[in-house]
Amino acid sequence: MKSALFNRQPDDKPFLIAGPCSAETEEQVLETCERLAATGKVQALRAGIWKPRTKPSGFEGVGTRGLPWLKRASELTGLPTAVEVATAKHVEDCLAFGIDILWVGARTTGNPFSVQEIASALRGVDVPVLVKNPIHPELELWVGAVERLQKAGLTHVGLVHRGFSSYGNTDFRNAPMWHLPIEMKRRLPDLPLLCDPSHICGRRDTLAAVAQQALNLGFDGNMLESHIDPDNAWSDARQQITPEVLRALIQDLVWRHEPTHEQEFRSALAGLREQINQLDAEMMQLLGRRMAVAEQIGRYKKENDLTILQTNRWNEVLERAQRQGASVGLTQEFVAQYLAAVHLESINRQNKVMES
């Protein structure tokens, strides 16, 4: 497992971890895992043993008695197993039953005390540990969790992107916010990065699109939930698929390799990237000029006792920019987000002028 996920080569196929959201019965775990192994697409088996639920009335997992089921599944299939841990006792139990891979869940990643407890329990045991992003989009918590594990001596630490809680979001159970895992990969390029489409989507019909986008972005693979009878699963029924459906989903994904070393390809890509560099430089120059004008406006407002925020003017700017953006293929959402950042910087500049 370590060589497959932590020492990846450019031509290595995407890594897939799959299994039920929750271990329910021994029969369910064994049948699911054997059918997953039969697909030939799975490199590791997962199952939830302890389930952190929002309310105590929800199914909180079978607990430690489910670990021997996973151990048996590994013996039958020859595949390593993966389990989520949230406490030192979870770690101890998993190690006692020979679980191969541990992962830190989103709720736990957001609690430094819990992450430290897990890290301390793993000191001296170099088992692979995957860290899911925290529920809320706080990148430093994600980085901090990785650092705590590494400081405990763990050398095989990876990342799992499972999306972020977003108020008012309707398209996903957890918004992907792809720029955040991309930033994590930029900061920690040596760590493998998997995607968890099941928790991002929350439903079956969009799993393939998210799994494909992860591969398009250079992720090392996916973690997907699979159940022999998804509609009757004891937890997260809507986002689980049968092993056979999972096989078809994985088979249809397009696997894009890392850049080759062919000179023609490298030269063409270098040329396009240089165009991007030049355009970015021009944009920075234009933004600098825009902010200089904003400061002049700030001085005029100060001299004439006008408020910084002029709502009607802002609406005019936004509407005009969205029309112009649409004419060159930019979405309204992108234009709004871009202008919001520019507008905030303009306000900050004008406020400094007011205070001077």
Rank of each mutant, 00 (worst) to 15 (best):
V143C: 13
R204I: 02
A96F: 05
M283W: 10
E34M: 15
R65H: 09
R65M: 05
L16I: 15
R204L: 00
S57D: 06
G298Q: 05
L253M: 11
L339T: 03
L193V: 02
E147R: 14
E355G: 08
D305P: 01
T81A: 06
G110Y: 09
L215I: 01
R148G: 07
T25V: 11
I250S: 12
R320H: 08
E258W: 03
L279T: 10
G329A: 13
H179I: 12
R289Y: 07
T206S: 00
G144Y: 01
E282Q: 07
D252A: 13
M223N: 01
C94N: 03
D220L: 01
L79H: 00
L102D: 00
Y300A: 14
Q239H: 01
R8Y: 08
T87G: 13
I308A: 03
S346E: 15
D12G: 00
H161S: 09
H90E: 04
R290K: 10
S165V: 15
A96V: 08
L193H: 01
V146W: 02
T64K: 10
N111Y: 10
G153V: 12
A294T: 04
R247E: 14
A37S: 04
A341C: 12
A145C: 08
Q263I: 15
P189L: 02
D126C: 06
A44I: 01
K185A: 11
G221Q: 02
F113P: 07
H161M: 02
G325P: 04
D252C: 05
N304H: 09
P192T: 05
L191S: 08
V85C: 09
P137M: 05
T81R: 11
S226M: 00
G98D: 03
L67H: 06
N348V: 14
R266Q: 15
R238D: 04
A44K: 05
P112V: 04
E31P: 06
R186K: 12
G218R: 09
E274R: 14
P259M: 05
R349K: 14
D126S: 15
H257Q: 15
H227A: 07
D100I: 04
S226G: 00
E225P: 05
S356I: 07
P56W: 12
L287K: 12
H257M: 13
P80W: 06
N304F: 03
H227P: 04
M1N: 07
R46W: 07
Q240M: 00
G66N: 05
K151W: 14
G19K: 07
V254N: 14
G66E: 02
K185F: 06
F219C: 02
R148K: 13
P176N: 00
A47C: 07
N222I: 09
E345T: 12
N232H: 08
W178K: 13
E117F: 11
V83Y: 01
E26Y: 06
P68R: 02
H136S: 14
T54I: 10
H343S: 14
R8M: 01
A209Y: 04
N315D: 03
Q278W: 10
G98K: 03
